[in-house]
Design a protein around this nucleic acid. Structure first.
Length: 196
DNA sequence: TTGGCGATTGGCT
DNA sequence: GCCAATCGCCAAT
């Protein structure tokens, strides 16, 4: 299967549309030791004016990447242990993003197994903290452009858009009832079969 | 300077 | 399903 780079012009301009659009697309990391890739099966949108969005209280040293024009990586540490990968999703100066919550493994599975310390395929990329660990995505990628030909990028095979279901976002206390989580129904690599 | 609080995970019941 | 571990961030002191 040939994966082609997505350009910025190919990304929807709206955050919620981008979160839907990314289901069925690919995250690719051209690591020094080889290519790692997975198909996006679950995402969440964090919108401008959304209380759950890290950008809600304005720009800070941590969340600066959310304010870059769409198609940049925002990487942060959750709970002191897990790294989260997001794609900035609005114009420059507007803080919003899409969290990548789960991938279906495609390439580099042996390296993912080593990094995760498990041979269970289903546990490699299911969950936002797991997928960054397996793919070798760390804080060095915070703020990088995913559309500039670099080592971390978004791709497509040109396949037909899959079915997409939506639910409430996972793990939130604020704005917990908004239907901004998107996933491919029935896909076993989705972190949970439904939201709240 | 500090303490409360997470966009989670893994282990155990 | 429940719960503790873990630590950087940032609002309030």
């Amino acid at each position: 299967v040939q994966i082609k780079r997505l350009t910025r012009a190919g990304l929807p301009v709206d955050s919620e549309e981008l979160a839907r659009f990314l289901i069925g697309k690919f995250v690719v990391h051209d690591d020094a030791q080889g290519r790692l890739s997975g198909r996006i099966v679950e995402s969440e949108a964090y919108l401008p004016g959304d209380e759950a969005c890290h950008a809600f209280r304005g720009r800070t040293p941590r969340n600066g990447a959310l304010f870059l024009r769409r198609g940049h990586a925002y990487v942060y540490i959750a709970y002191g242990t897990s790294l989260m990968l997001n794609v900035s999703s609005e114009g420059a100066g507007i803080g919003a993003g899409v969290l990548i919550r789960a991938l279906e493994p495609l390439e580099g599975i042996a390296m993912m197994e080593r990094r995760r310390g498990t041979g269970r395929l289903r546990d490699l990329l299911r969950g936002p903290g797991r997928l960054t660990q397996a793919m070798g995505i760390d804080m060095r990628y915070d703020g990088i452009d995913l559309c500039d030909g670099g080592a971390l990028w978004l791709g497509t095979t040109g396949a037909r858009r899959p079915a997409v279901a939506c639910s409430t976002r996972i793990g939130l206390t604020r704005a917990a009832d908004r239907l901004l989580r998107f996933y491919e129904p029935g896909n076993p690599f989705v972190s949970r079969s439904s939201g709240g």
